[in-house]
Design a protein around this nucleic acid. Sequence first.
DNA 1: TATGAATGAGCCTTCATTCAT
DNA 2: GATGAATGAAGGCTCATTCAT
Lengths: 195, 195, 195, 195
Amino acid sequence: MRESDKHQQIIEAAVRVFARNGYYNSRVSDIAREAGVASGTIYLYFKTKDDILVTLFREKMAAWVAHVRERIAVEPDPVAKVRRLVALHFDTLERDPALAEVVQVELRQGHKFFRGASAHEVSAYFELIGSVLEAGQAAGVFRGDVPVNVATKVLFGAMDQMATSWVLGKRKYRLTDAADAVATVFLRGVTVDGA
Amino acid sequence: MRESDKHQQIIEAAVRVFARNGYYNSRVSDIAREAGVASGTIYLYFKTKDDILVTLFREKMAAWVAHVRERIAVEPDPVAKVRRLVALHFDTLERDPALAEVVQVELRQGHKFFRGASAHEVSAYFELIGSVLEAGQAAGVFRGDVPVNVATKVLFGAMDQMATSWVLGKRKYRLTDAADAVATVFLRGVTVDGA
Amino acid sequence: MRESDKHQQIIEAAVRVFARNGYYNSRVSDIAREAGVASGTIYLYFKTKDDILVTLFREKMAAWVAHVRERIAVEPDPVAKVRRLVALHFDTLERDPALAEVVQVELRQGHKFFRGASAHEVSAYFELIGSVLEAGQAAGVFRGDVPVNVATKVLFGAMDQMATSWVLGKRKYRLTDAADAVATVFLRGVTVDGA
Amino acid sequence: MRESDKHQQIIEAAVRVFARNGYYNSRVSDIAREAGVASGTIYLYFKTKDDILVTLFREKMAAWVAHVRERIAVEPDPVAKVRRLVALHFDTLERDPALAEVVQVELRQGHKFFRGASAHEVSAYFELIGSVLEAGQAAGVFRGDVPVNVATKVLFGAMDQMATSWVLGKRKYRLTDAADAVATVFLRGVTVDGA
DNA sequence: TATGAATGAGCCTTCATTCAT
DNA sequence: GATGAATGAAGGCTCATTCAT
C-alpha cells in the first residue's frame, strides 16, 4: 500500500508537470518536487524518466478503456453505445484537464509512445470502438459498405480532434456540449438509410 | 538565390532527419551532415534549432494550403470539393513519406508547435475546410444544424487519424484507397437528406 | 559474540564482493545482500564503506602476519625460515582465492590504502621479513653488503609479483609449485658464497 | 597537429590529476581545468573517463618499453643488459614523479587495467625482460634451472616493489641509488656459479 | 559566407548514508 | 539490534550555440 501510494503519487505529479511543461522540458527533479519526494525516490519506483511516461500512459489508457467498456455495455443498441462513447470520451477529458493536456499534446510526440510500448493500450481502445461498429453492422443498423477499421478511425479521429482543439484553445468552452453534434454526424454517416 | 538554396537544403534535410529520429532526438549536427553543410552554417540561416522546426512547418503548411486551395477552387460544387480535398490530403502525404512522418508524428509534440508560432498556418487550413462547408450550407447542400467549426474538426480529425494510423503502421497500404470511404462517411453525415 | 558474528559475516561478504567487482564498483547494498543483512545493518558495525575495506585489510593482514610469524619461529635457521616464508605466502593466497584477488588487485588502489590507515599492518610484514634477514646477516649466512631494507623489498616484491601474475592469469596453475624457485633465486642472491 | 596537441595536453593533465587524487576521486572537470580546456573538449578526444586512463597507460607504457628496448640493445652482454634495465626502470620513474605515482599506485587498481585493454602493453615489458634472461641462459651465463617466466617476475617484482615503496615513502631518497643493489641480488640469484 | 573546434550549462542517474519503525 | 525506504549531493556526458579563422 505504501508502494502503491508513492507510485501513484509520482504518476499524478508527472501528469501535472508534463501538462505544464511538456515531457522534454520537464526535469525529473520537477516531478519529484511536485510529488513531494526526493528525486532519488523516483528511481525506486520507475526505471527511467521514459518509464514514467510510458507507465503513466499505460495505466491511464487501461483505466480509460475499462471505464468506457463498462459503461458502454449497459447501453441497449449500437447507436446508443456510440452516443455514450462520444459523451464518455469528452467527459473523461473534461474531468481531468492536466490529463487531457498530456494525452492530447504530450503523448503524441516522438517515436517511442504511439509505437512501441504503449501501442497495445491504444489498440485496445480502437478495438473497443471497432467491436461496437461491427455489432451495428451485424444488427443491420450500420452500413456494410464502410470498412469497420476506416469507420473506427473516422470516429476516433473526429473525437480526438475535437479534444485537441479544445485543449489547444485553453478549454474555454464545454467539450461535452459538442458530443451530440459529433455523434450525430458520425451516425448519419454510417447508419443505413431509414434505419 | 544562394541563400535560398541553402535554406531549402537545410529544411529538406531537417525533414528527413526529424522523420528518422524525432525532433528531440535529432542533433543540429545531424541536420548539418544530412544537408552537407557545417553545423555553424545552420546558424546563418536559422536562429535556433526550434526555428528550423517552426519554419519547416510554416513553409510546408503554407505550400500545402495554397496547393489544396488552388485545386479545390476548380471543383464545381461543395460535395466535389470535399471529395477532392480528402483525396489531395492523402495524396500529398503519400507523395512525401518523410514529410508525412514529421507532420503526423513529430509536429504533434509539445506546447510550442500547435500553439504559438505555427498556429496561424494550421488555422488557415481549418479555414479553408470551413469555407467549403459554409458554402455547402449556404447552397443548401449541407445541413445547417451542424456547426461548421464542429464539422470542420470532424473532417480534419477523420483525415488526420487515417493518416496517422497509416504512418504508424509503416505505410503498408495505399492511403488514397481510403479517400472515398472517408469522404463518403463524412458527406453522408453532413448532407441534407435527399440532396 | 553476536556483534562479532555479524562483523565477521560482513567482512567475509565484502571480501567476496570486492573480489568479484572491485571496491569502487561494489555497492554497500551488494555487501549487505551477500552478508544476508540489511544495508542499514552495515552501519551498525562499520562507520563508512571505506572503513569496511580498511578493517578488512587490517584484520586479514594481522592474521596473516601472526600466522607466518608463528610458523617461521619453529624453523631452525634463516635459510629454512625464508623457504618457509615463501611457501606460506603462496599457500595462504592459494587457500583463499577471493582474498587473493582482493589483496593482489583491489587493495593496490588509491591513496587511501597503502598509505594511511593500513600502513601499519603492511610494515609489520615487512619487519617480519626484515628480522629474518637481519638474523641471517648476524649469523653470517647472508651477505652484509646488501641493505636489509632493500633485500626485504626484493623478496616481498618477487613473491608479490608471482602472486599478482597468478591472480591475473586466473589462477590456472599451482602457485606453491613456484615457491622453491623463488626462494632459491633469492637465497642465492643474498647468501654468502660457500655458505 | 592541433589535435595531437590537445590530446597530449589532456593526457599530461590527467597524469598530474590522477597522481594527486587518484582516478576515482578525480573529476573529468578537474582534468579539464588542469589541461586548460572546457570539460566538453575532453570528449572530443576521449570517449569516456576510462578511456583517458587506458589511453594514458597504453601510451606511457609503449613509450617506456620502446625506450628501454632501445637502450638495452647497445649493452654488450646479458649481465650488463640487466644492470642497465634496472637503472633505466628506476631512472624513468625518478624523472617523472607524477607518472610514477600514477603507474605505481593508481594503475594497480581494479579489474579493468591490468586485465583487459592494457594487458598487451604490460606483457610487452615482461617479454622484453624475458628475452634478456633467455639470451643469458642461451649464452650459459644464467642458470638453466630457473624458469625464465619465474625469473622475469622476480626481477620485475623486485624493481616494482622498490619503486612502490619509494613512491609511498614520498620519494625521500634517490631511487637510482638502489639500482645496483637490486641488480646485484638478482644477478647473483640467477648467474651460473663462477661465471 | 562557411567552417568545425571549442564551449559550458544542464540533467539524468547512482549510491553512500540516515532514520523512523 | 535490525530494517530498507528515503534522501540528495555529486558527476559523467551531451549538444545547442559561438567565434576565430
